[in-house]
Computed example of a mutant assay.
Amino acid sequence: MKRRNELEKIALTQPKLLQTLVENRRVFNLDNCELNVYESYQQAYHIPLTFNDLVITSMVRGKKVMHLFDKPSFDYLPGETVIVPANETMIIDFPEAELQTPTQCIALAVDAGYIHQTVDYLNNYYNAADEGHQWKLQFNQYHFENDTEVSALINKLIRICSSGNGDKNIFADLNLKELLIRLLQSQQLQQVAQETAVSGSNRSRHHFVLQYIHEHLTEKIAVDALSRKAYLSRNMFFKWFRDQFGITPLEYINRERVTMAKKMLAIPGNSVNKVSAECGFTDANYFIRIFKKTEGITPKAYQMICTR
């Protein structure tokens, strides 16, 4: 199944310029980051790769199998991003790489001082004093499915870093800061959602709001009710939610409903209309539109893949 929010394809290295058929590397250096483009043209296993700085990697073509943090290995596919701390060795397999179908991956190594500046910025300007939350990169959450904004930022950074523009450090700085903030917000959302599932809603307004959403996911969820849970006005609630999690409340609700719908569509006999209604969508056409936007295919097509 084609994944959504894949990166734009990067031109492959000309064959006569290849230095190696496994993890051939092109590098573009900037003031605060280093863009590496890796390509592999033959099967290989247990290839180590380590960076001295934190690295943001994203798959462009093909498939790798990643071994990280003594965790179970996982398939790494286009439309996904992985972050790895400095001096952590990735062990990588290339089970499907061939001359005609190479893998291609970017690795954006980011200066530690720049990361600290960005995290300090978030703690100074995107924190409510009464919540006691401190922004920080977490490596218990390191594997992401790209959203539209993350893909757009990475695509833009690739174009900037590989260009000959004399001002590219300025533009890279702006886009890199936004990318880091998006990833931090995504981690924040994952962390709060996991904590809410385990221990309920009695920790912070983050947990109260997500708990309420999940308890009422199959019903109509009023924004005023969410605002009250957060003890904020309607307008301030929208801004707070976006600042904390990087998406709007409606985007989060729809995303969780689509996740529920995918499980139901995998059960033979469930119609699209039934799944739509039971997942809290009042309009089946709206459900189909949101599902396709999120998953890249219609609910019916997804159901056919799951049940064939």
Score class of each variant (00 low, 15 high):
56 I>F: 14
56 I>L: 10
59 M>T: 06
61 R>C: 10
61 R>G: 00
61 R>I: 05
61 R>A: 07
64 K>T: 05
64 K>W: 06
65 V>F: 03
65 V>P: 00
66 M>I: 11
67 H>K: 13
68 L>D: 00
68 L>C: 07
69 F>V: 01
69 F>K: 08
72 P>C: 05
72 P>H: 08
73 S>M: 13
75 D>I: 11
75 D>G: 07
75 D>S: 14
75 D>L: 12
75 D>H: 15
76 Y>T: 04
77 L>S: 09
79 G>Q: 12
80 E>T: 10
82 V>T: 14
82 V>D: 07
84 V>E: 01
84 V>K: 09
85 P>M: 08
86 A>V: 00
87 N>Y: 07
88 E>R: 06
88 E>C: 08
89 T>W: 02
90 M>S: 12
91 I>F: 07
91 I>C: 06
91 I>L: 15
91 I>G: 02
92 I>H: 02
93 D>G: 08
93 D>K: 05
93 D>T: 04
95 P>W: 11
95 P>Q: 14
95 P>F: 12
96 E>D: 15
96 E>C: 11
98 E>L: 14
99 L>Q: 15
99 L>A: 15
102 P>S: 09
103 T>F: 03
103 T>W: 02
103 T>N: 11
104 Q>R: 12
104 Q>K: 12
105 C>I: 10
106 I>A: 07
106 I>C: 12
107 A>S: 09
107 A>T: 05
108 L>M: 12
109 A>P: 00
111 D>V: 03
111 D>N: 14
111 D>C: 09
112 A>T: 08
113 G>Q: 10
113 G>M: 00
114 Y>E: 07
115 I>C: 05
115 I>R: 00
115 I>K: 02
116 H>P: 00
116 H>S: 12
117 Q>E: 15
117 Q>G: 03
118 T>F: 01
119 V>S: 03
119 V>R: 01
119 V>P: 01
119 V>G: 04
120 D>N: 13
120 D>M: 05
121 Y>C: 05
121 Y>D: 13
122 L>C: 14
